[in-house]
Amino acid sequence: MIEVKKDKNDLYSFVVTAKGGNSILQSVPFPTKKELSATLKQLPPLVSKPSVFERKTSHNGKFHFTLKDQRGSIIGTSKDYSSEAGMENGITNFRNRISGLDQSQLP
C-alpha cells in the first residue's frame, strides 16, 4: 500500500507498507503533489533496475537501503533492518508491492 501524507509545511511524502502493515520505505519530501505523483508513476519500471537500490550499513551495525531515481537522486529510505538478509527481503517486498500496482491505484 502507498500512503500519501502532507506535513505542516505543505510538503508531500509517501510511505510504502508491506501487507502486514510495516513500513518498507519513507520518501523524501516533495514540494507539490504533482511532483510526488510523477515520482510514483516512475516507480513500477524503476524498481526492476538493480542500480536504483543502494545498500548501506550504519555505524551501529543496522542495514537499510535507499531508492534512487535514474539521475541518482534519493527518492526514499527504508527502515533499519537487523540483518543484511532482512534488508534484502525488504527490497524484494518493496519491488513486489510496487511492480504489482496498477497505475490507477497510485494516489
Rank of each mutant, 00 (worst) to 15 (best):
T57M: 14
P50Q: 11
F53D: 01
P45D: 11
V16L: 10
I75G: 11
N60R: 14
V15M: 04
I98G: 02
N60G: 09
K79Q: 08
L43A: 03
S82N: 14
K62I: 05
K33C: 03
E88R: 14
L67Y: 13
S104Q: 11
N60L: 11
K5R: 11
R71E: 12
I74Q: 03
S73E: 09
R71K: 14
L101C: 07
N96Y: 01
G72L: 03
G61T: 03
V28N: 00
L46F: 00
Y12W: 15
K41A: 09
L36I: 02
K19R: 09
L40H: 08
K79M: 05
L106P: 03
P31L: 07
S58T: 15
S51Y: 15
N60D: 14
G100N: 10
F94I: 02
N96I: 00
K68A: 10
D80Q: 09
V47F: 06
S83I: 02
S13M: 06
F14Y: 08
T92K: 15
G86V: 15
A18I: 02
L106S: 04
P45K: 03
K62D: 13
A85T: 14
T57Q: 15
L67H: 08
K34H: 13
K8E: 12
G72Q: 08
P50L: 06
V4P: 04
E3T: 09
V52C: 04
K68T: 11
G21D: 02
P31C: 07
S99F: 13
S27F: 02
P107G: 00
R97W: 12
S27M: 03
S37L: 15
F53Q: 00
L46H: 00
S27D: 05
G86Y: 12
L67N: 08
G20S: 14
S23A: 09
D80L: 10
K41E: 10
P29K: 09
N22M: 01
F30L: 08
Y12H: 06
S23L: 06
H59K: 13
I98V: 05
T57P: 04
Q42V: 11
G100L: 06
F65Q: 04
N9M: 07
I24P: 05
K34P: 07
K62S: 13
K34F: 13
Y81G: 06
K49I: 01
P29Y: 15
R55L: 09
G90W: 12
S37K: 10
S13R: 14
G90Y: 09
Q42D: 11
S58R: 12
S51A: 12
N89E: 12
V15Q: 13
K34I: 10
P31F: 04
L106H: 05
T92F: 15
I75W: 12
E3D: 07
M87N: 01
G90I: 04
F14R: 01
E88C: 13
A85Q: 13
M1D: 11
N93V: 03
G76E: 01
K5S: 12
K41V: 02
T66W: 01
E84I: 08
S51K: 11
S83R: 06
